[in-house]
Design a protein around this nucleic acid. Sequence first.
DNA 1: AAAATATTTCAGAAAGTTCTGAAATATTTA
DNA 2: TAAATATTTCAGAACTTTCTGAAATATTTT
Lengths: 170, 170
Amino acid sequence: MNQTMDWQEGKEKFLQAWGALGSEWGINRTMAQIHALLMISPQSLSADSVMEELKISRGNANMNIRALMDWGLVYKELRTGDRKEYFIAEKDIWKVVRQIIINRKKRELDPMLKILDEISGIEPNCPEAEALNKTVHELKLFSSKADSTLEMLVKADSNWFVGTFMKMIK
Amino acid sequence: MNQTMDWQEGKEKFLQAWGALGSEWGINRTMAQIHALLMISPQSLSADSVMEELKISRGNANMNIRALMDWGLVYKELRTGDRKEYFIAEKDIWKVVRQIIINRKKRELDPMLKILDEISGIEPNCPEAEALNKTVHELKLFSSKADSTLEMLVKADSNWFVGTFMKMIK
DNA sequence: AAAATATTTCAGAAAGTTCTGAAATATTTA
DNA sequence: TAAATATTTCAGAACTTTCTGAAATATTTT
């Protein structure tokens, strides 16, 4: 019989999968797993709960929760009459993706555009220099387009995206 | 005086920048640098030239050139009367990006969709299970959309993309 | 078929990253 | 202000990834 998966097993699979995906994206495994755990938690969790659920040390939990907050993917939540801090993840997947785009764009695309500018305009006095110039020029065009596309995606809200953009590709 | 950068210096900056960008994307530094080197070379290069230019070992060069060929970003070129193999990079940046999308989609998005399907339909008999179901459901919707968007981008050719898509965001 | 040359493989070394756990610091309560 | 509790930091350990270089394999020439 096609026995339905139970919650515990589903949760574990999900944490695993999200952690693996994270590593492929240069986000570390634990950071991705903490994010996943918070995404599927109905309540906010304390650092201790995170440590226990994922079997990780206090230092590790602290560092990665902090990083998630820096990325704007996790918020602190204070409960009155409780000294601990609790953490809650952004659950709107579109907002999550948007935060990630913003962060990566800042870290990667912007520096790349800067360097391409610096390399522009080398004296084309040999085939090598010409080839370099050509590649740099094309990359600049492409990056600027990518840049404005991402800018647009970041500014657009979820509904606009689903409505307008998705209609286009039907 | 605003002295223009010379070719050697520009090349080095470019190789550095591309290598760094690669590591942020889970592509290893050397692989990215070999790709960059081939992108800005007017001629195809032998493994030996790559080794010498980037100061890397034969094994390293071989492994990463191989990986680049697997990704469809670099091709082998044979010269008549020469026993060595020469390598040349895909220089159309749009094709490069397309290959990368294809590869990453296969490695990441497809497995994620598969796992989300497996986790679907857990008995919602507690708030935890409900929250998991909700997250999984939303991720599935989002991933399918991302999937078809990428499918479209992959099928579209460069000109279509620049014309239609870019006009839309003006 | 032997010599010359080119390519691939892979074990161990080097480099890079992530994690632990205990100490330091900060904050709240009594 | 001292004790209790919570959070942060960070040196070294554990783990992961990447690289080297020499040996094995493959290919071409004589």
